[in-house]
Amino acid sequence: MSRWYLGIDTSNYRTSAALFDAEHCCHENHGRLLDVPQGKLGLRQSEALFQHTIHLHGQIAQLTEGIGTQIRAVCVSTRPRAVEGSYMPCFLAGENVARSIAHILGVPLYICSHQQGHIVAAAYSAKQLSLLDKPVLAWHLSGGTTELLLVTPGADGLPCAQIIGGSTDISAGQLIDRAGVLLGLEFPAGPALEKLAQDSDSVKPFPVKVSDSYFSLSGMQNKVEQMFEEQHPASDIAQFTLETVLYAVKKATANAKRLYDVPVLCAGGVMSNRRIQTQMQQTFSAFFATPELSGDNAVGAAILAAQQNGECLWRVPASIPSVN
């Protein structure tokens, strides 16, 4: 018999709801990007919260009809990271709905951070849930986060993430989105910028200074803007941006691997870039999420509902057939 778990995530970029079947290790995922006006670099929290409130019911309505009677627990992301003071109002939309659903169904409600959901979704997507039963280096590279994490198993069933590197100022996603919007691309700009960069000849990255595993990207934004003012081809600006991010990530990873000889897991929307994936896989044998589960999604939260409910998923191999 299927053992279904519900996950909900209302991040600053996507509204999503997902089901995970712990018996057959498969999932169902429905999500939609928030609507960002042309030329804008994101939304205010009040705008994001409003859109989640409007659209969350639509994502839940796409889940298998009548599945509620089979749901054993619910998990929802309630904050960006699992640390003191981490808070964003947009997560309230998902939390309120999740609490109501759990109460009506009479099932346990669990919470996780958005980052924990990303890590778990990446491991599951890569068919490597067993990675979470031991230490692993994990990149969380997204629109708002560029962090290199040392992830260890938590006693509560949740991955415990310690920041050991990453950007000290703007995130890789912010650099990519700002470069993309500057070039007239839609937000979020990652996929379009990657496509644009394919039309460029070889453009060398800027050798970002990496101290231990930390680096700064704000100066790279200035260089991108300078290239734009000097009327460099848009494709060259795109390639310069992506290659610079790759340079910093690879160097930071190499430094961390000297201290922690453990596997590397890559999560977050920026990590769906094919060039970054190829280089990280060749250099570090890194594991990645599929495109569907690279960006913000509720699948990780659904899996964490199962894990916190006693399923012990980290100790068994997992395939990822989707019921979509």
Score class of each variant (00 low, 15 high):
H24S: 12
A126N: 10
P188N: 04
D169L: 11
E186T: 12
I8E: 00
A298D: 05
S272H: 05
S294D: 01
S202C: 08
Q62K: 15
G143R: 11
C75H: 08
R14V: 15
K250I: 15
G154I: 04
T283V: 07
E186F: 02
A197F: 06
D212G: 03
A305E: 07
S130C: 03
S211P: 00
S171T: 12
R258Q: 14
T78W: 05
L137Y: 04
H103I: 03
E47I: 11
T10V: 06
Q239F: 00
L56R: 10
G66K: 06
D21N: 15
H52Y: 11
L175Q: 01
T69F: 02
K40H: 06
M227K: 00
G106E: 04
I164Q: 01
C75Y: 08
N12H: 12
L185N: 09
P159S: 10
T145P: 13
G268Q: 12
Y124I: 11
H30Q: 13
G269T: 05
G295V: 11
Q38L: 09
M220T: 13
W139R: 09
E243I: 00
L193F: 01
T244I: 09
R81Y: 11
Q226I: 02
S285P: 02
T146D: 10
I320V: 15
N324Q: 15
T290G: 05
K209W: 01
L56H: 05
P291V: 14
P153W: 03
V76P: 06
V208Y: 09
A93G: 06
F20R: 03
D9I: 02
A123M: 10
